Amino acid sequence: MQSRAKTQDNWKRSERQKRIVVGLDDSFVPMGFVEKNGTLTGYDIDLAKAVFKRYGIHVDFQTIDWSMNATELQNGTIDLIWNGYSITSQRKKKVAFSEPYLRNRQVLVVKKKSGIKTFAQMKGKTLGMQTGSTAEQWYESKQKVIHAQSTVLYDQIPNSFLDLNAGRIQGILLDEVYANYYLAHLKDRDSYRVIENKDVPRDLFAVGMRKGDKTLRRKINSALKALQKNGELEKLNEKWFGKDSNYLGK
């Protein structure tokens, strides 16, 4: 049954059950996260609901271990990976992607008092990243750009900020959208520095799914195109980012 889930087209089942399951890390602001009152919210939450509203399908959001997202997908525990999920060549080997809907890049966050102003200055320092993240994949292939003495992997990004503040690590490599949103909501925002690097290419957020789900892919792409055309995608960008700089397709 699990092997069939990898190759079969499950759209008719989803349409019949009027239900689809999205896997996410519920601490990834602003894409999908739990507010203090316990409500799940975020850019991708809004977008997934808008996409499947067009088909009369309810979206169930399931928190997963992000490092196991592809395994959860192939096992049939979830139907989609939709949570600031960047397209990479490594992920393409296991997962099919929708058309991209948001631009992103990897940035380095440090404390200003550390004096670090460039990627190169992480040499001899300890770098934090999320397990299974685009940052981890990029770092493994680009250590000449940012070569730390050691690395620490975290299940969730907020834990890396605890260690950064305590001085246990000196930098965090993470998604720009996360860094900008997270820091903007901190009282001590000015104590941090966000560092970009010209050798870090832009990456693109998209929806991940099983390769057999070709109808699902077409349906998502069609809905994304419609939401782009009618302006709803642009409104979501403005709601969550306050500007339209990351919007694709204008």
Rank of each mutant, 00 (worst) to 15 (best):
L204F: 09
V200H: 14
I195V: 12
K187V: 08
D175A: 06
M209K: 15
I169T: 02
R193Q: 13
Y182L: 00
F205I: 12
I169E: 06
G208D: 14
D203F: 07
G208E: 13
Y192R: 07
A206D: 10
M209Q: 15
N180Q: 10
G208C: 14
H185P: 04
V207S: 15
N197Y: 07
I195N: 09
K211A: 10
R202D: 10
R210F: 01
L173H: 10
V200G: 14
N180F: 07
L183N: 01
F205N: 12
A179Q: 08
G171E: 03
V177T: 15
D199V: 08
K198V: 10
I169P: 06
D199W: 02
I172L: 02
D175L: 02
G208M: 14
G208H: 14
E196L: 05
D199L: 13
R189H: 04
P201T: 01
L174T: 14
L174A: 09
V177M: 14
F205E: 11
D190K: 00
P201G: 01
L186F: 01
R193S: 13
I169F: 07
H185Q: 09
K198I: 08
Q170C: 03
D175C: 01
S191R: 02
Y181S: 10
Y181D: 09
H185V: 00
L174P: 06
D213R: 10
S191L: 00
M209R: 15
L173F: 09
L186G: 02
D190E: 03
I195M: 07
L186N: 05
K211M: 11
E176Y: 10
Q170W: 07
D213T: 13
I169S: 03
G212P: 12
D175P: 01
D213V: 13
L174M: 11
P201F: 05
Y182K: 06
S191F: 00
Y181L: 02
V200D: 14
I169L: 01
D199P: 04
N197R: 11
K198S: 13
D190A: 02
H185K: 10
A206F: 11
F205H: 12
I169H: 06
E196G: 14
R189F: 01
L204A: 02
L204M: 06
G171K: 09
K198N: 08
I195A: 04
M209G: 15
Y178N: 13
F205G: 04
K214T: 15
R189C: 02
V200E: 12
K214V: 15
K198Q: 11
L174N: 08
A206W: 11
E196R: 11
Y178S: 07
V200M: 13
I195W: 07
Y192Q: 07
V194Y: 05
E176Q: 14
V177H: 09
D203V: 11
R189T: 05
R202L: 10
K214S: 15
Y181W: 08
L204E: 06
Y192C: 02
V194G: 08
R210T: 08
L183Q: 05
K211T: 12
D203S: 08
K211F: 08
R202F: 10
G208L: 13
P201K: 05
A184Y: 01
L204P: 03
D213C: 13
V200I: 15
R193I: 04
K211H: 08
A184Q: 11
L173K: 08
A206N: 12
K198M: 00
V200L: 14
H185E: 04
P201W: 01
L174K: 05
G171H: 03
D203C: 09
L183G: 01
Y182M: 06
H185C: 00
G171R: 06
